[in-house]
Every structure is written in structure tokens, then in C-alpha cells.
């Protein structure tokens, strides 16, 4: 089982004819993603491996139903592209762009909340339901990382996610759905907003959260567990425990200051709420086994 993206979803791709867009469209379809059409202004009538291209979403949805949008759009056009998808009534939108202007990130998040849509990103690899479908850019062909199974993963990272997920698989588990919320200062969807999907999914037995210093997303998850809002086992890995305060180490969102957003504070709250907290990636597997009694 999986959440957010399955083979039932009808996916439109904005920026499909670009180099990155066409390359990853092929991979998404190879895995099983149902891509219905692409959008690139000025290229209506063309196709990418038989998938038709339209000038706009409005034109595309006259011919095909779509419920999900995948964006391969540069950061400075991301706000417009997300708004175009929201305007067309699309409720699931994934954007991989890194470098969206900060104040436009606020506008995107606010608009998504107003529309009741779940926009994932920016600065993310996307979302993958292992063995089934994906939106974004994942090396799903590497079995020791993207094996199907029952562990939901939510993450702010890319390479580190491969690292941690490999440990999940090494411990004998596999993935239900991996959701990348992205490494930016203003993630369009927050960890705590992803949790209800995993809570409701019978195919997800436990969740691994790959967090890091900065922001308050991990604290919100700890509060959700403490309040009984999320009841499945959760194992967290928090990067940046030894990062010096005040320096921006890693992602744009990864900076702690004035005692807030520290890795230490996140670890303490999560442990207090009853989550397993791994100090090293290799501890994630054993903690999962412990939590699930396997």
C-alpha cells in the first residue's frame, strides 16, 4: 500500500519537454506512474514518448482528466506554475525546484492551504511509492534503497535519504511511500501534515523521519505524537547535532539560533514523546526492529 501517489493517479507534468523533465518522465513511467499529459507553453502538439504536450493545463484538462501535477519548472517560474495547477483544481502538486524566492515560498504555502491542496517541495527529490509509482527523481532501480515494504519515510534531504533508507532495507524492511518535504526554509507541506496519510494507510506500519537542525517541523511531530494524533511507531534521525549554532550548515532551512531549532531540542522532545531517535543512520534499522517487535 502507499500514500500520495499510486498508479491510479492521473499525472500531468509541467515542464515535460525540458532535459530534466523528459528524462525523469521516462523514469516515472518506467516505474508505473500514469502520466496523462505534459505542459510546455508554445509546444502544444508535440509529444514525449507518445505523451501529448499542451500549451497550458487548461488546454490539457479539456482532453484528459488529471488529479496530480509534477513540476520540472525553474525556481523563478515555480510560483506561477503552482498557481496554474491550483487554479485548475489540482490538489496534489510536487515541485523539485531549488532556489524559489523566499517570499514566493510564503505565497505558495498560503495558497496551497487556502485551496486545501498538498504541495510538496521545493528543493525535494519528490515522492515515491516503492515498486509502484513516483513523482520526481529517485534511483528506484537501486534495490538496496528502494525496496517495497511497510515503512513510510518522510525527509528534508536527498542523498541522506538514500543513506538512511539503505539502512531501513538492510534491517529487513522496505518502503511504503517516501515523501520528500524538501530542504527549504518554508516547506510547502510540513512533516506534521504528512503524518495523517501514514496514520490512515494500512500498508504503513511505522514511519522514519529524516530531519535536521533548523525550523520547527520535528518539534511539531513530537507534539503530534505526544497528543496521540499519530499512534504508529516513529523513528527519527536528526542531522546536525554537532553543527555550530548560528552557521548555516547544509540546507537553507538548516540553521539554529537563539536556542530555537537546535538538533538537541528536537531530539529531547521526540524522545519525551516516545519516538525512537537514532544518533547514527545505522541505528535506524535496529530501532525500527525494536519498535515493531521483529
Amino acid at each position: 500500500m502507499s500514500v500520495y501517489i499510486t498508479r491510479e493517479n492521473k499525472v500531468l507534468i509541467q515542464g515535460m519537454t525540458g532535459q530534466e523533465g523528459s528524462y525523469w518522465t521516462r523514469h516515472m513511467r518506467d516505474l508505473g506512474t500514469n502520466v496523462v499529459f505534459g505542459v510546455t507553453p508554445g509546444k502544444e502538439g508535440q509529444d514525449v514518448d507518445g505523451v501529448p504536450v499542451f500549451h497550458s493545463i487548461v488546454n490539457g484538462i479539456k482532453a484528459f482528466e488529471a488529479d496530480t501535477a509534477m513540476l520540472f519548472v525553474p525556481p523563478k517560474f515555480t510560483k506561477d506554475a503552482v498557481f496554474e495547477a491550483l487554479d485548475a483544481g489540482i490538489k496534489k502538486i510536487v515541485t523539485v525546484a531549488e532556489g524559489v524566492p523566499l517570499q514566493e515560498m510564503l505565497q505558495i504555502r498560503k495558497a496551497a492551504l487556502s485551496c486545501g491542496a498538498m504541495v510538496l517541495g521545493g528543493n525535494t527529490s519528490g515522492v515515491i511509492s516503492a515498486g509502484e509509482a513516483m513523482l520526481g527523481m529517485f534511483p528506484y532501480w537501486i534495490d538496496r534503497v528502494y525496496k517495497p515494504g511497510t515503512i513510510g519515510v518522510m525527509t528534508r534531504s536527498g542523498s541522506l535519504t538514500n543513506e538512511v533508507t539503505a539502512e531501513v532495507v538492510k534491517a529487513g524492511f522496505g518502503l511504503s511511500t517516501l515523501i520528500g518535504v524538501g530542504g527549504d526554509q518554508v516547506p510547502f507541506t510540513r512533516f506534521v501534515e504528512v503524518l495523517p496519510l501514514y496514520q490512515a494507510d494500512p500498508g504503513t506500519k511505522a514511519v522514519v523521519m529524516v530531519g535536521e537542525l533548523g525550523g520547527s517541523m520535528e518539534e511539531e511531530v513530537a507534539e503530534a505524537i505526544a497528543a496521540g494524533f499519530f499512534t504508529k511507531p516513529l523513528v527519527a534521525f536528526i542531522g546536525g547535532r554537532t553543527a555550530p549554532e548560528g552557521k548555516r550548515m547544509g540546507h537553507a532551512g538548516a540553521i539554529a539560533g537563539g536556542g530555537r531549532g537546535t538538533a538537541k531540542g528536537k531530539v529531547e522532545l521526540l524522545e519525551k514523546a516516545g519516538a525512537g531517535v537514532a544518533k547514527r543512520p545505522s541505528e535506524v534499522g535496529p530501532l525500527l526492529r525494536q519498535a515493531l517487535g521483529t
Binding site: 528534508r156 536527498g158 542523498s159 535519504t161 538548516a254 544518533k279
Partner: peptide, 16 residues
């Protein structure tokens, strides 16, 4: 290293 999160994690591991 490559990857913001991974590099930060390697930094932690060295300190550990």
C-alpha cells in the same frame, strides 16, 4: 561530500 543533509551527517559522525 555531496548532499547538504549527508555532509552534515558526516560532520556529526566525525565528531562522534
Amino acid at each position: 561530500c555531496a548532499g547538504a543533509g549527508l555532509t552534515t551527517t558526516v560532520f556529526d559522525l566525525i565528531n562522534y
